[in-house]
Design a protein around this nucleic acid. Structure first.
Length: 284
DNA sequence: CGTCATGTTAAGGA
DNA sequence: TTCCTTAACATGAC
């Protein structure tokens, strides 16, 4: 799935396209993505609502909807899962394969496409309420990172990917920030010292912030019909593949030399996820 | 055919 | 109860 930077870039792209529009109709094609799965209540609730804006926390997006003036907004939560895409196209245009739902906003439609159907659309807010701090949106200090991770027996990478601890890191950026901070993914969280928390905090904030800026500089293909470069989740339209690949220091680079020390980058499984790291730069 | 994939959560064990 | 681990979900690329 897209992680925090990709979701934030998507939010910035979508916000001006949907804000102020009326949601004439929500059509659900794959009921699996709707929670609860009976989509009747959801489609009934959102019909006719005005979209006030689109917000994000971690990897979750939500449309702020209002039923009528005087009413306060309520969120329609969207998660892209592993393969979800959201984009705007003319309502008259043909829909691609794997469309899970379409929000008709008059002449334009907001399309939610999801091949693997791990994505979600719901009025339930418990998942966003349980999220940990968002490192680039909330005030986020070293002490916040420290208290979020706590004294866990789990490996630091597993802890970083827990969205209730910290909202936004997935498998790619967890690998990347640990390399940048010089911390082994396998290190027990409770063994981290203050100096390492400082490096990790700096790595998280700088990596995510720069990647959002990088994403905003690309001519992105949100629909995903082109091959893209496969590295920024949304492919870019032309010739930016190499530039994008260079953004990753360890992820997907098993067998290649580390950019810092030239040791060969390894891949091992941790918490059922492929984990890329440099043995020399990332000691326990 | 098998392996792997940027994710979350329910279920069960300790 | 809390903390932690695993299986399941579903499809496509290689």
């Amino acid at each position: 799935m897209p992680e925090l930077p990709e979701v934030e870039v998507l939010r910035r792209y979508l916000d001006p396209l949907v804000s102020g529009k009326r949601l004439c109709e929500l059509r659900v094609f794959k009921s699996r993505v709707v929670r609860p799965e009976s989509s009747g209540k959801l489609t009934e609730t959102v019909r006719g609502c005005r979209v006030k804006g689109i917000e994000r926390r971690g990897k979750f997006l939500w449309l702020n909807l209002v039923k009528s003036r005087s009413r306060s907004p309520f969120p329609l939560v969207i998660h892209l899962g592993m393969t979800g895409r959201l984009f705007v196209q003319p309502s008259a245009a043909e829909l691609p394969r794997h469309v899970a739902a379409v929000f008709r906003l008059g002449r334009e439609s907001l399309v939610f496409k999801d091949t693997r159907l791990f994505g979600r659309i719901t009025l339930e807010t418990d998942s966003i309420e349980q999220l940990g701090p968002d490192p680039i949106t909330d005030e986020f200090l070293v002490s916040d990172l420290q208290s979020a991770i706590g004294k866990s027996a789990q490996p630091v990478k597993v802890r970083l990917m827990n969205q209730r601890v910290l909202a936004g890191l997935g498998n790619i950026y967890a690998c990347e920030v640990l390399h940048r901070a010089g911390i082994s993914p396998f290190m027990k969280s409770s063994d981290l010292r203050l100096a390492k928390f400082k490096e990790l905090h700096e790595a998280i904030v700088s990596t995510l912030t720069r990647q959002v800026e990088f994403g905003m500089s690309l001519d992105l293909d949100f629909i995903g019909e082109t091959t893209g470069d496969g590295l920024f989740y949304f492919g870019s339209r032309h010739g930016q593949a190499r530039k994008s690949k260079e953004r990753f220091r360890v992820y997907g680079r098993a067998g290649e030399p580390c950019g810092i020390c030239s040791s060969i980058i390894k891949r091992e499984e941790l918490g059922k996820r492929g984990t890329f790291f440099c043995v020399k730069c990332q000691k326990e």
